[in-house]
Structure formats: C-alpha cells, structure tokens
Amino acid sequence: MPSNTGRRPFLAAVGGIALAGAGIAATSERANAAQADEKVTLLEGTEYETTGYVQTADADGPTVLVVGGLHGNEVAGYEAAANVSDMELERGRLVTVPRANATAIESGTRIGADGTDLNRQFPTDEEPSTELARALWGVVEEYEPDVVIDLHESQELYEGDVEDGVGQAIFHSRDVRAEEEAQEAAETLNEDYVDDSTYDFTVAPFSLPPSETPNMFVHKAARDTDATAFLAETVSDGPELSTRIHWHARVVRSLVWEELLTPGEGDPEDPDDGGDAPEEENEIPVARIETDPENAEETVFSKGETVNLDASASEDPDGEIVTYEWDVNGTNEFEEGDETAEVTLSFCGELPVALRVTDDEGATATEELVLSTV
C-alpha cells in the first residue's frame, strides 16, 4: 500500500469539505521518539461533539482509519475502537474516531438525536446527508486513509443473507488484497481467540446494488476514495461484552499488522537489515465482573438492595492488571478503585454499571452489566 507521503491521488472530490468547515479542530496532544499524537474534535460545542485520535509513527507508512459508535447500541465496536486508539506503531499513521455518534451512545440507541441512522447518510459520489456525517467524512478527506475499518454489532449471526443478521463476519471491499487480509484475520480469530465454533468469523465482500444496504460509510470510503475498506461485526448477545471487545480489537490488529505494526522495508528495526526484531505486541486484558448475589443481571431487585461487584476474575494474558476503575452510577465516568465495589440500588429502573481494567502496558478493557430495580 502507498505511504502517507506521495500517496495515490485522493478521489473524494465530490462534496469536498475543508477540515474547519466540517466542524473539526485538531490539537497536538504529545510527542515522543516513537510517534506523535494529536486529538481531533468533531462538531465542538454541540451535542454531537466527539473526539478522534491521531497516532503518527516516525517511519513513513500507510494511514489507517478506525471508526466505532456509528450506532450507539453497538457497545463492543466503540469500546474496541477506543482500546486500539493508542497502540504503538512501527510506521504509518492511525486515526481513530471511537464514538462517532455521541448522542446515540449516550442514549444507548441505534439512532442519535437528529433522528437518523448515521450509517445511512453516506451516498457515493455525493456529499453526506447530515452535519454529523459530513464532519465524519471530513476526517476521511483530511487524513486520506489507505485502509478504513468500521466496527459494529448485530443481533444475529451472518449466514449468507444480510437481512437475517451479520454478526461474526468481516466484510471487505471488492479487491483481492482486501479479501486475503479479511480471510487471514478471520482464520487468526477462529484459531486463537474463538472458543466456541458457533461464533467463528466468516468473510464476505460488500454487497452490490440492488441488494446492498444503501449509503453506508465503508461503501463510500471504498468507492469514493479507493481505500481498502472493512466492516467487522460481532454478535451483540451471547458472548460477554469483554470477549466481543477483544475480538474486535484482534480484528483491527490483524488487518493493520503489515501496514502499521511491522517495520517497513529499509526501516532500522527490520530484522533483514540487521536490526533488532520488533517487540512482541501486548495482549489486551480481559475485564470480568462477578456479582453477589450471582446472576445479578438476570435478577429484578427491590429498591434499597445492595449488589457486590468483584473484578478478581479479570486477567491479562501476558502481564498483570494494574488498575481497576468502576462506574457504578451509570454516568460513563470511571473512578479508580479496588478489585471489588458495591452498588446500592436507590431508585427504580435500570442502572448500567461498568468496570475498566488497565494492564502493565497501558492497554484497557471494559465490561458492563445492567441491574434492574422495581
């Protein structure tokens, strides 16, 4: 794939949007010897405001864009996009927009405050249909990604008909390279990370008209920019949230392995050039919440009852967990704590509680459950 200097001409000229005009502001976050980081704010000061992250390695290479949260009820996708947003790169550039549809995520629904499905606002060869869609497309136009990865969840498994469900599938743009990389990612997931073959990942190309779902983000990315594009789907029910997040993160790492995570030809770290081999990549931890009483998510409690939460079953495959953070108020704000926490159910309704763990290399994972009170 081309590098991010002297790369192929960018083709998304129709409906062109300048970065500032799209409601995007870029600010520098930090820089070190390995890579420079910056933040990108979309629609700052509005209810749709959300943050993107840009990681740029010293060594030149392709640009990859990872997007999550186009649908606010597909939690594993946006949590995984957040998890991979700060991974260390050997070369190239990684741009992530983990929580693209902030109002939909806040309400836990597919559709945001504007009443539209964000992933149906990207007609090919035309300007995106809504302000939020135009802002997200502005990121594409600004950073000109060579690879685009969009992370989602589906209620049902994909069995060849997108109308019946698309879970546990990696869909790809219609080119040989994309098909090969999607197949390799699926094989890696199925062999090393999927314990139950019911949830094995399958691979399929993007549908074509008239059977395709219209105006999807990755379709526009593939057709208007000639990027290699992927849409990854896990199921939304069955496997634990932490497992689904882990699967999504592994899909991303597999799809960008050659592009961003291995040295390019001639890089000083390339073993063929006599340098040291790159360090083995850090495994993402697994967050797990156990409850007392057991199966609390399946229980309806009375107001005033207390539920004890235990994160000791969480694990890190290649290190140790150093930080436990809890959100026991349903505010999406985490506070550092211990392996255990408790929740007193002081009102009637549903209360989402969440755990976030961080390993000794800085990788994070999240688990969430919902407690019900009458």
Rank of each mutant, 00 (worst) to 15 (best):
V66Q: 05
H71I: 07
N73A: 14
N73P: 13
E74P: 06
E74H: 09
V75N: 06
V75K: 07
A81W: 06
R91Q: 05
G92H: 02
R93P: 01
R93K: 14
L94V: 02
T96P: 00
V97E: 02
P98D: 10
R99A: 14
A104N: 03
S107A: 15
S107M: 11
G108R: 01
G108L: 01
T109I: 06
R110M: 09
I111K: 13
A113F: 00
G115Q: 03
G115K: 02
L118R: 14
R120P: 09
P123W: 07
D125N: 09
D125E: 14
E126K: 14
E126Q: 06
E127W: 04
P128D: 03
P128S: 04
P128A: 06
T130D: 01
E131A: 15
L132T: 03
A135I: 01
L136P: 11
W137R: 03
V139Y: 00
E141D: 11
Y143M: 00
P145E: 00
D146W: 05
D146K: 03
V148I: 09
I149L: 13
L151A: 05
L151G: 10
E153G: 14
G160C: 05
V162H: 11
V162L: 12
E163F: 14
V166A: 15
G167W: 01
Q168S: 12
A169W: 08
A169P: 14
I170N: 13
H172E: 05
H172A: 11
D175E: 11
V176D: 11
R177S: 14
A178S: 15
E179K: 15
E180M: 08
E181Y: 10
A182S: 10
E184W: 07
A185C: 08
A186H: 10
A186E: 01
E187F: 07
L189E: 07
